[in-house]
Nucleic acid binder design. Structure first.
Lengths: 248, 248
DNA sequence: CGTTCGGTTGATCATCGTCAAGCAGTGTGG
DNA sequence: CCACACTGCTTGACGATGATCAACCGAACG
């Protein structure tokens, strides 16, 4: 039952030397989480956790009581890359109800020892995550509240659509306005104003955990949305060292 | 002459199976760059570039003409981790005059094939960079202009002090106010006002590319500065999978 | 000697945050 | 069945933070 895991890692680079079979045969423990529950606390030991269903957030609590959401995880995403070798510096929380599949710490260790190429694939996954993070940084630093919000909605919709989890311009987004605020570095009330403007302009609505994109063209234009940032590998991958990890 | 490279990578985890000797013997090409010059353009092929002298920034130019600086590199930092397997999504530019040592693409490839543990070390370096990035994200999203600025100055000073590149509260920072602004997501003029307030309060001054920290206590308090974020490995490293990369 | 670049200052304005209050939906206990 | 509380959305008034515009100054440089 690990086809999801294989498919997920496959996006980051070809799996070689039998690691695909090993992954497919690996024993995955399934865990479920309620909305808001902590899936992985800061400092926790890393396993290899894959989000199978639902949405999750990677979030840090700041000393002054504020929260900053660093990333959003959709089904197929690995949840504890940040804690791969070192202690994780942030929490992972379920946004809506979630289902998580976990490879045990021991089995991951064994697989990494037997299949060096697995590390290259995980490394690429980390690099992809870092690239998405940089996109969020540019949003936080240099875009207006409306553009930031639009960009987030576009990203959420796009990623779920890539997984066939969206149709008719609709997808799940079990988040309240304060969650959006914590992701975008804005106040809850201002998010309300922005969302209201988006709704009044017929661009998008968020109600009862359901995101409805009514005018993708105008929304993505407002967001200056670039799907390329989200792709696991960029177009230069075939040049130079790109395939290196797969060849080792 | 690659002791710097060995020392740099050593911070991220023990180098095993002869890779240390191989690195020490590797042929490093030295390049020098003038202030503002592009060291590595977005999309460029990855080698293994190490900043030997000077300060560099990792920066993206946004479609609307704005810039966002994602990270600062001090001597000993690797410059092209983001382009390790995929095309790099941002530029690396010299802030002041820089000296860079580069391992050739071919030699890096050969070393990675011969020494699997090198990849684990690079992977940790990437994870560390991502953690520093998240700290910047939290700054951008949830801190005031003054706290953000103070935090950046603290980080710059702290990292150079760790390398014995600072003394008497002074270190190099060959940046103009608009550079600081692009790092913090603020306007140049507002940076001026914040810097002026810091100066008037006797906390820190920046003049002629020289950063002078006059009151570290109050500055780091204002910044809520946490040096732990900058450390290559965190305190949990010895638990669980932490040493795994070194063991493979 | 003019030009450019970076720092400086002030005035003005927009964006966004804070405070306060009301409202609708939901669940709970009497 | 009805308070009651609770949570999240909504609205408005107000204020602070930070952006924009414009001008000036000093130093470096050709």
């Amino acid at each position: 039952m690990s086809r999801l895991l294989v498919a997920s890692l496959d996006r980051f680079g070809p799996l070689r030397d039998g690691v695909r079979e090993r992954l497919a045969a690996s024993c995955l423990k399934t865990e479920t989480f309620e909305p808001g529950q902590v899936i992985l606390a800061a400092g926790g030991r890393s396993k290899l956790r894959l989000l199978a269903r639902g949405l999750a957030i990677k979030v840090a609590s700041l000393p002054d009581g504020g929260r900053q959401i660093f990333a959003l995880a959709v089904p197929g995403d690995l949840l504890d890359l940040a804690g791969l070798f070192v202690g994780c510096d942030h929490d992972v929380r379920a946004l809506g109800p979630c289902e998580v599949r976990a490879v045990s710490s021991g089995e991951l260790k064994a697989m990494l020892q037997d299949h060096p190429s697995l590390l290259a694939v995980l490394c690429r996954a980390v690099l992809t995550e870092a690239r998405v993070q940089r996109n969020w940084m540019a949003s936080l630093g240099r875009r207006s509240a409306a553009a930031r919000t639009a960009n987030l909605l576009c990203e959420i919709y796009w990623r779920q659509k890539s997984l066939a989890l969206a149709k008719d311009g609709q997808c799940a987004l079990p988040a309240v306005q304060s969650d959006i605020a914590d992701a975008l570095g804005l106040s809850t009330i201002h998010i309300h104003r922005v969302m209201r403007a988006l709704r009044d302009d017929g661009l998008a609505t968020l109600r009862n955990g359901l995101l409805h994109i009514q005018d993708w063209e105008r929304l993505s234009a407002l967001a200056a949305f670039d799907p390329g940032v989200l792709r696991p590998q960029c177009e230069h991958e075939s040049a130079g060292l790109a395939r290196l990890g797969a060849e080792t």
